[in-house]
Computed example of a mutant assay.
Amino acid sequence: MTDSFRASVDLHEIADFLKRELKMKEVCNQIFYQKLVERASQERNITVTEDDIQAEADRQRLALRLEKASDTLAWLADQMISPDDWEAGIRDRILAQKLSEALFGSEVEKYFAQNRLEFERILLYQIVVPYERLARELLYQIEEEEISFYHAAHLYDIDDRRRTMCGYEGKLGRTNLPPQIAAVVFGATPGELLGPIATEQGYHLLKVEEFIPAELTPECRQEILQRMFKNWLASELNYALSNASL
């Protein structure tokens, strides 16, 4: 795509596209959220320093393997933004992070303790097939060791990715699974063969490889912090819009 072709897209066209794609509300809400972050941060004297921005910019450059200044400028041009735009975006994200920590950092442990079950995880393998008869036949063959669970998944699963991964579904929590499946697998013993269970997808055979107890890791802490902050933003936005104060 040439620069002249890109330049031919104006703001009205962008707005019209967002409306047609039903994304205008989503984008407007993000703008409203940023206004809320700015206001709440000013009230709490929360600021972002040049050192904060520089450290995050360096981290991003390292992640993107932008070793030279010219590499960074070329990447920014490809993104259709200026260095100032990039730094402004970094500043906005850091400000939101600092505000979320100020608002809810001290409440994360309490939230984790009250919602511990939500953060349990399992390593799950599964086979999904379209017919109950096939699911029961595979169950019998696996139990009789005529075929391994993983080979059966590779041959029969309806999903290309799972076939390639021999049934590997991933590290999952309760909210990542249909309720009827979550209820079964989180009460299972690792290695136990489960199913078939019928859902809209088909008939599931399941195997829990490992049970991972809930632990307040840095990743889990960040997940909780983001969840609490997101809920706060939504609540503040609803209140602000109802009072037309934005």
Score class of each variant (00 low, 15 high):
Met24Asn: 13
Pro83Ser: 15
Arg44Tyr: 00
Trp86Tyr: 14
Pro213Trp: 03
Ser41Cys: 06
Ser8Gly: 03
Asn243Glu: 14
Leu99Met: 11
Lys23Ala: 13
Glu132Arg: 08
Leu36Gln: 10
Lys171Leu: 08
Ser8Lys: 07
Ala198Val: 07
Leu18Cys: 07
Ser106Ile: 10
Glu101Val: 08
Glu146Ser: 02
Val27Glu: 13
Ile81Ser: 11
Ala240Pro: 10
Tyr140Gln: 14
Leu225Trp: 00
Ala77Phe: 10
Phe211Met: 02
Ile31Trp: 03
Asp16Thr: 15
Cys166Gly: 07
Glu137Thr: 09
Pro179Thr: 10
Ser100Ile: 14
Gln97Glu: 14
Arg121Glu: 12
Asn115Arg: 04
Pro130Gly: 09
Cys220Leu: 02
Arg91Glu: 13
Gly89Pro: 06
Phe32Ser: 12
Glu146Asn: 07
Phe112Ser: 00
Leu194His: 03
Phe211Asn: 03
Leu172Asn: 03
Asp157Glu: 09
Asp84Met: 04
Val108Trp: 00
Asn238Gln: 08
Thr189Phe: 07
Ile158Trp: 02
Ala74Ile: 15
Glu144His: 05
Val27Gln: 09
Leu36Ala: 03
Tyr111Pro: 02
Ala244Trp: 14
Glu50Phe: 01
Ala40Met: 08
Thr164Glu: 14
Ile181Phe: 01
Arg59Tyr: 12
Lys25Thr: 15
Asp51His: 10
Asp58Asn: 13
Ile90Arg: 05
Glu143Tyr: 07
Asp84Ser: 08
Leu177Val: 11
Glu132Ile: 04
Ile81Arg: 09
Glu209Cys: 01
Thr2Gly: 02
Ile46Arg: 04
Thr72Gly: 13
Pro190Tyr: 09
Trp75Phe: 15
Ala69Cys: 14
